[in-house]
Design a protein around this nucleic acid. Sequence first.
DNA 1: CCGGATTTGTTCGTATGTATG
DNA 2: CCATACATACGAACAAATCCG
Lengths: 221, 221
Amino acid sequence: MPNSTIKLQNMRMKDLIEKELMNWIMDGRLDKGQRLREDELAEIFGVSRIPVREALHVLELKGLVEVTPYIGATVRQLSSSEVKQVYLMRCLLEPLAAEHAAELITKKELNNLKRIQEELECLCCVEHNPENRRMVYDKNRDFHMAIYNASKMDILVNLINNLWDNIAFLRIRSAYSPDYPEMMKREHRDYIHLLSVHDGKTLSKVLRENLEQHAKFFQVI
Amino acid sequence: MPNSTIKLQNMRMKDLIEKELMNWIMDGRLDKGQRLREDELAEIFGVSRIPVREALHVLELKGLVEVTPYIGATVRQLSSSEVKQVYLMRCLLEPLAAEHAAELITKKELNNLKRIQEELECLCCVEHNPENRRMVYDKNRDFHMAIYNASKMDILVNLINNLWDNIAFLRIRSAYSPDYPEMMKREHRDYIHLLSVHDGKTLSKVLRENLEQHAKFFQVI
DNA sequence: CCGGATTTGTTCGTATGTATG
DNA sequence: CCATACATACGAACAAATCCG
């Protein structure tokens, strides 16, 4: 009898359900305002209501679900004003993490970053279709988080992750411009270069400028 | 039969327990590393484990409690490196909120702010003792949040609130320098003036400088 | 390496609050 | 305004995982 391929140690139903619901929200299977009933989800996942309930409450605190006591839970997606706020925060926080990362990044972390970038470029070579769009999103996110994690500022990185979660639905669904992959590739190679020469000041400046550009793009949608 | 003095509408046990535990952590009744067992707390509060459990999970996401699956929950207090991170984030985020607040603040909100400041100065008149230290903290926090709320940037304000929660234990317990009340009074009057003339740029600059000062103070402790 | 004690994770049943007729 | 329907909030018991001897 073979063992399970996936190590479920310390993985509670609650966590699995949370991740699954997040996927559903991100890829559009659940739309804004969609009602999330505990019973219904419990039946779908084949568990009782409690782990569903806990997952919903976690997602509420993360800003992806709105829970009203005794009424119920609905999918929450940020309004355009709220998305703007998230971008303003990202423009301040991500350059901060990147600046520290440039000081502290190790050879090993830099190599890991280069490996992620190679994988990302592979994904971008093939045509952009809905199937690999999610993979590009995930890999791009890995790339950015690999930079921020090098700052060793765990609290800050955790917060940045939350901000990304909040706008994930937007970034995965919105149409990429045709030159998006090329632009991303150029930006990322800049980041890698600036990190390798430990130029935190320039990195933080470039990153902020790029983020401001991206923010503008999402504002017109 | 008289009605309850406190309106408990939409106030779940979970929320009450969460607030109470936060108070315990803030005023030092619970120390770092203190074990928080669900059934023990359930007995203390006279409820079942479920609301206690949910409160603990909320506090985990807010950064005040550490929960390890199948092991348990302990009180978490930020290390000095983590406190530093929080101050770096506050130095970026609070000036941002304040700048927008200066543009958008209404006469009514400004009057409310002045009223809070009067109450705060009253509290500061009497000698600083442990009993009113907490009240001074709360009122000062009300003052700052009244400013940030005027920005109407709810996501940002919520995040700032979380940051304050994370370092509350430090600010309430640490010794005030004798001239702290006078310094705070001066700073606050500056803020009120700059808000009333809608000078967001200067406000954000002054606020950041003050925050950097405060950060230095807590770093030596 | 294994078994008991302990604590959390989950299930199911009941109570309570909300909204609609 | 009250009754009913519905979904969540809570309580008690069982199952699973961890730790220690």
